[in-house]
Amino acid sequence: MGKLQLLMKYLFTLIYLCSFSIFSQEVKKDILYLDQNLVPISKTLFKTKSNSVIFHSRNYEKDSVIESRLHYQLYFGKMSLKDVDGILTNFNKKSNEKIEKSKTLLIYHYETLSGYEEVLKRREESFYKFINSKDSKRVSLNNRYIKPRLKKYTKKDYLSKIKKNAKKKSKVITKVSEKFNTSTIHVVRNNKGYPLNNKYFTWIEDSTSTFQNKYHGTIMVLKPNGNYFIRYGHLTKEKIYTILEESNWSSFYTDWDKSLKSNSSVGFGIVKELMKKKKISAIQ
């Protein structure tokens, strides 16, 4: 091989290694810290607020930056009667039952609901991921070893499970409605083939995310007078009852405002009560 060929080979190798090094390096993006109103704030203030019981934070990756945003995970607010009417009008257009203005709304928001094909796909992915992992254990049967098998899951099984869950939810909805004069609404942002129509309770598809974008939460209690409460995350039945049982929310607003301004990690009054985790006793 001549000197020119050796030189060319060396140059091509060098170019390849340099290119690989450049493209393999992860481009580090700047982080933009935003408060609950999408106003830029310092990293220090963001950290202080994100440790507060009132907020939770989420990262949103953009083309050139990562946005770290604050969201309320607990909120007591007041909307105009016009806004209440707007929500009721929108829900009544999409609902399979009439929602009365005199009732308190108990609204549950779901990010995604999956149809049969989607569920089947996830089951298979989870199964094959498991059997290829270190956690997979072979099953002993008459001194022979066999790999775990994926249990058959038919569309009939899927629909049967949905019906069973719907009946169960319906009983809870009826009980709460009779006790507190409420209407319960289930809102979903992304529906991937889930059968929304059923005779047990109201499903509403909000694919444009208009409701969720304005009222970011998992559970919302909306009173006819415009008072509303939002919780992002799980809330037990007992804690929801605590909200519904109280007709005057003045002390709730005071406790929430105090918790917000103090950046407390545990909160005060109703905030502390709602966010308190249930202790599991070692003695049964």
Rank of each mutant, 00 (worst) to 15 (best):
T154V: 03
E26D: 00
M220A: 12
K82D: 04
S207L: 02
L159Q: 10
N213E: 13
L32T: 03
F252S: 12
Y215S: 10
Q25D: 09
S19C: 12
I41Y: 02
K258N: 05
I31V: 14
G2I: 08
R123D: 04
K94G: 02
S80P: 06
N181H: 14
I280M: 12
K3W: 09
G217W: 03
H71E: 15
F20K: 14
R138L: 15
K9Y: 03
Y116F: 15
K137M: 09
S160L: 10
P148T: 01
E100H: 11
G269L: 02
T112I: 13
K129C: 03
K171Y: 06
Y128G: 09
S265N: 13
L70V: 00
K29Y: 07
H109M: 10
P148E: 04
I54R: 09
Y10L: 06
G267D: 08
C18W: 10
Y75I: 05
R231E: 00
V84Y: 09
L244P: 02
D157V: 06
T208A: 09
S160K: 14
I15V: 15
N190C: 02
W203E: 13
R58P: 03
N142D: 15
D30H: 01
I230E: 02
L244H: 01
K278S: 04
N96W: 04
E124G: 04
S42F: 03
K272Y: 06
T174E: 07
E246N: 15
K93E: 15
K161M: 13
L196F: 03
Y72K: 10
H109S: 11
K239W: 08
D35Q: 02
K152C: 02
N90C: 04
N37G: 03
Y128Q: 13
G2H: 10
E97I: 10
Y158N: 09
T210V: 11
D206S: 03
Y108A: 06
H186F: 12
V176D: 02
N198C: 14
L7Y: 05
L105I: 09
R149C: 06
T48R: 13
F180G: 12
T208K: 13
G269R: 11
V266D: 08
Y16M: 12
S247C: 03
D30L: 02
I185Y: 05
I270K: 07
I99M: 07
K98I: 14
I15W: 08
T254S: 14
I99E: 01
I185G: 03
S52C: 03
K214T: 13
F127A: 13
E118P: 02
S102M: 01
L4I: 05
L274D: 05
L32M: 07
Y128H: 12
